Amino acid sequence: MSLWSTYRSLTPKTRALFGVGVMAWAAIGLWTSPQVESALGMQATKEEQEALDRQMAVRISRAEGDDHKGSQSR
């Protein structure tokens, strides 16, 4: 039996509780990760964080195209 079919065979209430449990586990992980990182000495320096922010920044550029597209010029 596959994992998906096993999940689907659970009662709706059990599936809902499982989903809430997974979301709670993720929330706890997001909430505690800064404390764990600083305790293990893995926290980024300000310079490293700024460099990462520059690399992850979204760059938007305008593509040049035909200005008369869709219009009929005579």
Rank of each mutant, 00 (worst) to 15 (best):
M1F: 11
S2W: 07
L3W: 08
W4I: 06
S5N: 14
T6S: 09
T6N: 06
R8D: 07
S9G: 07
S9A: 12
L10S: 03
L10P: 02
T11C: 07
T11D: 12
P12S: 04
K13I: 05
K13Y: 07
K13S: 10
T14M: 05
T14K: 14
L17S: 04
G19R: 04
G19E: 07
G19C: 05
V20S: 01
V20N: 02
V20P: 01
V20A: 08
G21C: 07
V22P: 01
V22N: 03
A24S: 09
W25Y: 11
A26T: 12
A27M: 10
G29L: 04
G29R: 11
G29F: 11
L30D: 03
L30C: 08
W31F: 14
T32W: 11
T32S: 09
S33C: 03
S33F: 09
S33M: 13
E37R: 03
S38E: 12
S38Q: 14
L40R: 15
M42P: 02
A44C: 04
K46I: 00
K46E: 11
E47N: 10
E47F: 13
E48H: 08
E50G: 04
E50P: 00
A51S: 15
D53W: 06
Q55T: 06
Q55V: 05
V58W: 08
V58E: 09
V58D: 05
R59V: 05
I60A: 13
I60M: 14
I60L: 15
S61K: 13
R62W: 13
R62N: 08
A63P: 02
D67V: 09
H68E: 08
H68L: 12
H68P: 00
H68Q: 12
K69M: 06
G70C: 12
G70E: 13
S71P: 00
S71C: 08
Q72R: 15
Q72M: 04
R74A: 09
